[in-house]
């Protein structure tokens, strides 16, 4: 009986209920109490262990719900439109001499920073609008014609 009272004061929100435990000490009322309270009074240690197990289960369930947020701070995004043709007045940077090779045969070109397919087409063919030809020849490494990277080695089909 005393153990149950100590248990109730330590765990005021006990599964078995502190107020019911106190009521259980009133002589003559024991039979009117629920079975669980009578069991708590009779086996305080067991009641305490059962409560701890239940609390542990609820804690674990609660933690499972708190799923950590995914980190999307390093997402890279871009967009382009079919109408986004290169402006005619845009200055074409000097790409240096064309890669050696006889005219009429395929050449190669290594992309440098600032390049675009239209700039490369302008350099090799004299016409920026011929960039799809380079894109087609390099389908295996260019998924998006707006995205080419420095160091990429491109095949330049014959003009």
């Amino acid at each position: 009986m005393e153990d149950a009272a100590i248990g109730s004061s330590l765990f005021p929100f006990s599964f078995y209920g502190a107020h019911l435990s106190r009521a259980a000490r009133i002589p003559g009322t024991e039979d009117a109490l629920p079975c669980s309270v009578r069991r708590a009074e009779a086996f305080p240690l067991r009641a305490w262990m059962e409560k701890e197990i239940l609390v542990g289960i609820f804690d674990r369930l609660g933690k499972k719900e708190e799923k950590p947020k995914a980190d999307f701070s390093n997402v890279q995004a871009g967009s382009s439109t079919t109408a986004a043709a290169p402006p005619a007045e845009a200055p074409v940077p000097d790409l240096g001499p064309a890669a050696p090779g006889t005219s009429g045969s395929e050449q190669s070109y290594t992309v440098v920073a600032g390049d675009s397919l239209s700039k490369i087409a302008k350099h090799f063919y004299g016409d920026a609008n011929k960039w799809p030809r380079i894109h087609e020849a390099n389908r295996d490494q260019i998924k998006n014609p707006d995205l080419i990277y420095p160091g990429q080695k491109l095949r330049i089909p014959a003009a």
Binding site: F72, N74, V75, Q76, G78, S79, S80, T81, T82, A83
Partner: peptide
């Protein structure tokens, strides 16, 4: 965009 007729716009996202 300044569409004239039928056009397509692509958006893309990547995460290293």
């Amino acid at each position: 965009i300044a569409p004239v007729n039928k056009e397509r716009t692509e958006f893309h996202i990547a995460k290293p």
